[in-house]
Amino acid sequence: MGSDLLQYTISGLTIGMIYALVAIGYNVIYNVTEILNFAQGEFVMLGGLFAVFFVGTLRLPLGVAFFGAIIATGCVGFAMERFIIRRARDASVLSLIIITIAVSILLKGTAMFCWGKDPYVLPAFSPGGPILFGGAAIQPQALWVLGVSALIVICLTLFFRRSVYGKAMLACADNPNAARMTGIPVRQMVLLSFVLSAAIGAAAGVVITPISLMEYDRGALLGLKGFGAAVLGGLGQFHGALFAGAILGLAESFCAGYLSSGYKDAVALVLLLLALFFKPEGLFGSSEAAKLKKF
C-alpha cells in the first residue's frame, strides 16, 4: 500500500515537472507581452523531435543533442516572434489568441511532414535499470526530469531577479511605454522572451522523450495542461507554476491510481476551471496585480 503511494507520487511528480516547465514557458512570454502563447506545447514536441533527429539521424552524442534541440527550438521561437507576432503588434487580444493558435497548427503540421506520424524514442540520459526504493521503482530518467526542472527554475529566478536583462523584461510587462522611455528596447525583450520560452519548452521535451516517447501531435494536450498549471499557479508566477505543475501531476497520478484512470485527463482541467472561477488570480498570484492585467 505504502509502496503504491510512493509509486504514484513519483510518477505524478515527474509528469508534473513537465507541466510546470510548460507553464513557466507561458509565464515568460506572458510576463513580457501579456500574450498567451497557445503554441507553447508545440515547443515541447519540437524539442523532443529535434533531439531525436540529432541522436538518431546525425548520430550526435546525447549531450550535444540536448543543447542542439534547445537551440533549434529557440530559433523557431525567434522566427515566430520576428516574422509573425511582430507583424500583429497592433492586433486585438482576440486576434493574437487566434494567431498563436494558427502558429501551433502550423508547427504541428510541419513536424508531421518532417518526422511523420510515428512516435520516436530517445535513449535514457544515464544507463541502468530502475532504482528500487521502498518498494517503488524509480526510473533514473525521472531523476533527470526533476533535476533539469529544478535547474531551469533556479536559473530563471536568478535571471529575473539579478540580471539587467531580466529586470528589463519584467519592466516591459508592467508598463511597456514607461519601459521604452527609460531606454529599454522593448521589441528585443519581447523577442528574447519568445526565444527563452521556446528553449524552456524544448528542454522539457528532450528530458521527457526517453520516458514517454514523442510524436508530432503531442503538443496540444501538454500545452493545455501546462496552461492549467500556469493559471492555477497565477499567471506570471514562476514558483506558483512549479507548485501548480506538481499539484496537477500528483492529482492526475492519484486519480489514475485510486479513482478512475479514464478521467485522469479531466482532473487538470477541472482544477483549471475551479481556479478560474474561484481564484482567477491563481493560488500564488495577487488579486491586486490581476486587476491591472489585460488578460
Binding site: D4, Y8, S11, I211, R218, A256, G257
Partner: peptide, 11 residues
C-alpha cells in the same frame, strides 16, 4: 496520449 502508465500498472 498518456505519457506514463505506472499508476495503472501499480494499481
Amino acid at each position: 496520449q498518456d505519457t506514463d502508465l505506472t499508476p495503472q500498472l501499480t494499481k
